[in-house]
């Protein structure tokens, strides 16, 4: 349904005075999403995972330049097509209730989302009623203002905004941080249900545990590249292909809680070779010569020359 290949995004920023510099924030991202599956995008802050969402929705800032191929339902996703499709065929579940208009009742806002996606006023009203009922939101919730709904309800309202659009692709950007574990679990379950209803879901998160609860496949991002695409089952089974994904798994407190030292390379001065090279225990001369390509391995993908089946 969605296929992204070799996506690159560069920002032009002002340094001091009139001098400008180039920031390569996304170097080489590849990802595909099929109807009916949840693909989790996992990475640290600064790995480019939120920018991916912005690119898909066509809301990158003016000083960004985009390269590479993105196609949605078989056709290239141009900036014009992004504008046409966002809110209709591609929907975003925002991170928090603060994305809603604080001065407008939530029911109206969700209804407006449905209308903007093409439904008539009457249709929109019934859709909203049905959706709220499905998420156990009492009828009175629709008449409340965003500050009046509790954390758990707020999440369900935010999920509703995506559901009423009939969007085929739903992007959820960091839906869990700051939530009580039970509410987080419930929110994730709603995303799972969206996929079971035949939609494609991209779950953007820094939290592997959350991702593994519902994802079919997990794409691990590092410094603006896809370093690995693995089945969710590969994590607990120890079948991970890339040293960074292995490190992420090992660093979980319930596992070994041991980190790899160092930090992501700066987008201003990326190394010539493998972007993970300076932190990798297996680094060799070949890695530092040129950036390894993303290659298929054991029904997954990996960007590492050392990975073996």
């Amino acid at each position: 349904m969605l296929s992204i290949s070799q996506l690159a995004i560069r920002f032009t920023q002002y340094d001091r005075g009139l001098r400008r510099k180039q920031l390569q924030v996304i170097t080489d991202l590849s990802l595909s999403v099929e109807a009916g599956e949840v693909v989790a995008v996992v990475g640290s802050s600064g790995s480019g995972k939120s920018l991916l969402a912005h690119a898909l929705l066509g809301i990158l800032p003016d000083n960004a330049q985009q390269q590479g191929q993105v196609s949605f339902l078989g056709e290239p996703l141009t900036p014009e097509r992004c504008r046409q499709l966002r809110g209709k065929a591609i929907a975003l579940i925002p991170q928090s209730i603060s994305s809603l208009d604080p001065l407008m009742q939530v029911g109206h806002q969700v209804q407006r989302v449905a209308q903007l996606a093409g439904a008539s006023q009457a249709e929109a009203r019934t859709t909203v009623g049905r959706t709220f009922a499905r998420y156990d939101l009492p009828k009175s919730t629709g008449d409340r203002y965003p500050f009046q709904v509790s954390g758990g309800m707020a999440r369900r309202v935010l999920v509703s905004t995506a559901v009423v659009t009939q969007a085929q692709l739903v992007i959820a950007d960091e839906p869990t941080p700051g939530l009580h574990p039970d509410v987080a679990k419930e929110t994730l379950q709603h995303l799972r249900e969206l996929a079971q209803g035949g939609r494609g879901v991209i779950l953007i998160t820094h939290d592997i545990e959350a991702a593994l609860q519902i994802a079919d496949r997990v794409a691990v991002f590092y410094a603006g590249t896809t370093v690995e695409i693995a089945a969710a089952a590969d994590f607990p089974a120890g079948n991970l292909r890339h040293p960074y994904s292995q490190a992420l798994w090992r660093a979980l407190p319930q596992n070994e809680f041991i980190p790899v030292p160092g930090s992501q390379p700066s987008p201003e001065a990326l190394p010539r070779g493998c972007l993970f090279g300076d932190r990798c225990p297996q680094v060799s001369e070949v890695c530092q010569m040129e950036r390894p390509p993303l290659r298929p391995l054991n029904q997954g993908w990996v960007r590492c020359v050392h990975a073996e089946g």
Partner: peptide, 23 residues
């Protein structure tokens, strides 16, 4: 690869927005 600046019209006239503002 296809190069597609997000807002070509605004970039074409003035290559540098900050120059524009200062001007």
């Amino acid at each position: 690869m296809r190069l597609s600046p997000t807002v070509p019209s605004r970039l074409s006239g003035f290559s540098n927005r900050r120059q524009h503002t200062l001007g």
